[in-house]
Amino acid sequence: MGTVRPIHEHIRSGTYRDDRHGDKIVLPPADLVEPKWTDLLPGSSAEAKRTRKDAAELWSRTAPVLSLAAGLTDAQRETLAMFCVSVANYWAVTREISRTGNLLKGRTGELVKNPLHTVRTMYVNEITALRKELGLSPATAARITRPATSSGGDSDDIWD
Rank of each mutant, 00 (worst) to 15 (best):
E78M: 11
R17D: 13
R17I: 15
R12A: 15
K49M: 04
S86Y: 07
R131I: 05
R17P: 02
T3P: 01
D74G: 11
E126D: 15
V119A: 06
L68Q: 08
T38K: 06
E110Q: 14
W37L: 01
V112D: 06
R107V: 03
K132C: 12
R52C: 07
V26T: 03
K113S: 13
L111Y: 08
V93H: 01
M82L: 14
A142T: 14
V4L: 12
S137F: 02
V87G: 00
A88D: 03
K105L: 09
T62V: 13
D31S: 12
R77W: 00
H10T: 07
M122N: 13
T73C: 05
I144K: 00
V124G: 11
G152I: 10
T128F: 07
D54V: 10
R146C: 06
D39Y: 04
R146Y: 04
D160V: 14
R131Y: 03
S44C: 03
G71N: 03
T38C: 05
S44K: 07
D157W: 12
R95W: 09
P138I: 12
R17S: 14
A81V: 08
S45T: 13
S155H: 00
L130K: 03
R52I: 06
P147Q: 08
G109L: 02
P42Y: 07
I158E: 00
E133V: 01
H10L: 13
S137I: 03
L134P: 01
L27Y: 01
S151T: 05
L41F: 05
E110Y: 12
S13G: 04
K132R: 15
L68F: 11
A141F: 03
L116N: 04
L103K: 11
E34K: 10
